[in-house]
Structures are given as structure tokens and as C-alpha cells.
Amino acid sequence: RPRTAFTQNQIEVLENVFRVNCYPGIDIREDLAQKLNLEEDRIQIWFQNRRAKLKR
């Protein structure tokens, strides 16, 4: 699968959610997927990668 290119707006929304909860449940991820026009699994991976970035 090709790399997902997130828009600046999508990143802002994801970062705002991350600040509140870095482990969002499936319900939050599915809601975000619908709002941001992305697949839920892409959102899940984004949070996984963002948590890894935080640990660095």
C-alpha cells in the first residue's frame, strides 16, 4: 500500500486528540476516521507511530 499523506488539517486534529488521549479506543478512532476521511487502521498506525516518536 502507498504511504498515506496526511493534510495539515488532519495532523492538527490528530495531534489535538493525542494531547488529550494517546491511547484512543476504537470508537474514537472510527469517529476520527469518518471526520477526517481516512481509514481507521491508518489512524491506529498514526497513534502507534506518534507514541513511538514521543518516546524518542
Rank of each mutant, 00 (worst) to 15 (best):
residue 1 R to V: 13
residue 2 P to Y: 15
residue 2 P to R: 11
residue 2 P to T: 13
residue 3 R to D: 13
residue 4 T to S: 09
residue 4 T to Q: 15
residue 5 A to Q: 15
residue 6 F to Q: 03
residue 6 F to N: 05
residue 7 T to V: 03
residue 8 Q to L: 04
residue 8 Q to M: 09
residue 8 Q to R: 12
residue 10 Q to V: 07
residue 11 I to H: 12
residue 11 I to R: 05
residue 11 I to A: 06
residue 11 I to E: 14
residue 11 I to G: 00
residue 12 E to V: 10
residue 12 E to F: 14
residue 12 E to G: 04
residue 12 E to C: 07
residue 13 V to R: 06
residue 13 V to Q: 09
residue 13 V to T: 10
residue 13 V to F: 06
residue 14 L to V: 01
residue 14 L to W: 03
residue 14 L to S: 02
residue 14 L to D: 02
residue 15 E to K: 00
residue 15 E to C: 04
residue 15 E to D: 03
residue 15 E to N: 08
residue 16 N to P: 00
residue 17 V to H: 05
residue 17 V to C: 08
residue 17 V to F: 04
residue 18 F to I: 07
residue 19 R to W: 03
residue 19 R to C: 06
residue 20 V to M: 10
residue 20 V to E: 10
residue 20 V to S: 13
residue 20 V to R: 10
residue 20 V to K: 13
residue 21 N to K: 02
residue 21 N to H: 04
residue 21 N to W: 03
residue 22 C to S: 14
residue 22 C to W: 11
residue 24 P to C: 00
residue 25 G to E: 11
residue 26 I to K: 15
residue 26 I to S: 10
residue 26 I to C: 08
residue 26 I to G: 07
residue 26 I to T: 07
residue 26 I to M: 06
residue 27 D to Q: 14
residue 27 D to K: 09
residue 28 I to E: 09
residue 28 I to V: 12
residue 28 I to W: 04
residue 29 R to I: 08
residue 29 R to H: 00
residue 29 R to W: 09
residue 30 E to V: 09
residue 30 E to W: 12
residue 31 D to M: 07
residue 31 D to E: 11
residue 32 L to W: 06
residue 32 L to T: 05
residue 32 L to F: 02
residue 33 A to P: 00
residue 33 A to E: 01
residue 33 A to S: 10
residue 34 Q to H: 10
residue 34 Q to W: 10
residue 34 Q to N: 08
residue 35 K to Y: 06
residue 35 K to R: 08
residue 35 K to N: 07
residue 36 L to D: 01
residue 36 L to P: 03
residue 37 N to V: 04
residue 37 N to R: 10
residue 39 E to R: 07
residue 39 E to I: 00
residue 40 E to C: 06
residue 40 E to G: 06
residue 41 D to Q: 12
residue 42 R to C: 11
residue 42 R to D: 06
residue 42 R to T: 14
residue 43 I to K: 05
residue 44 Q to G: 08
residue 45 I to T: 13
residue 46 W to M: 00
residue 46 W to I: 03
residue 46 W to G: 00
residue 47 F to R: 00
residue 47 F to H: 05
residue 48 Q to H: 07
residue 49 N to C: 05
residue 49 N to W: 05
residue 49 N to E: 15
residue 50 R to S: 03
residue 50 R to N: 06
residue 50 R to K: 06
residue 50 R to M: 06
residue 50 R to C: 03
residue 51 R to P: 00
residue 51 R to L: 02
residue 52 A to T: 14
residue 53 K to G: 09
residue 53 K to N: 07
residue 53 K to T: 10
residue 54 L to W: 08
residue 54 L to E: 14
residue 54 L to H: 10
residue 55 K to L: 04
residue 55 K to H: 07
residue 55 K to G: 07
residue 55 K to F: 06
residue 56 R to P: 14
